[in-house]
Amino acid sequence: MAETQVMVVDDEEIVCDRLKDQLEKSGFMVETFTESTRALKALEEKRYHVVVTDLKMAGPTGLDVLYNVRDRGLPTQVIIITGYASIEAAREAEAVGAYDFLCKPFELKDLTRMVKNAAKHAKRGMGPAGRGA
């Protein structure tokens, strides 16, 4: 199977580092972004199977990332991470078309499982990833 490209967007560096570490251990190719503006730019340049994004960030939010993916009709699956205070917003995101959401603190293996499943979904909708859009 072709490598699974995963994008992680979170303005907290610890989150990016931890997720990269964990997801790479499970065999994913991971790129992290602490600035959502750059993440949006990268989405235009490259295809990702799965985007894992924080909901609340300075600049474009997780919802903006999600809308960006949806509006361009990409098969990319978006997983939203939220603090426990914003579960309602996360539900909204799910209604808009997020693959799933997770509330911090969460168990890393739950996320890994979620990313695996999301990747399967994404691959049904797209050819080999990593090439230009």
Partner: peptide, 15 residues
């Protein structure tokens, strides 16, 4: 959570 299997942030510690 301190065992390393979880991801949490500063807000969790505060709360």
């Amino acid at each position: 959570k301190s065992g390393g299997d979880y991801l949490f942030d500063r807000r969790y510690l505060d709360s």
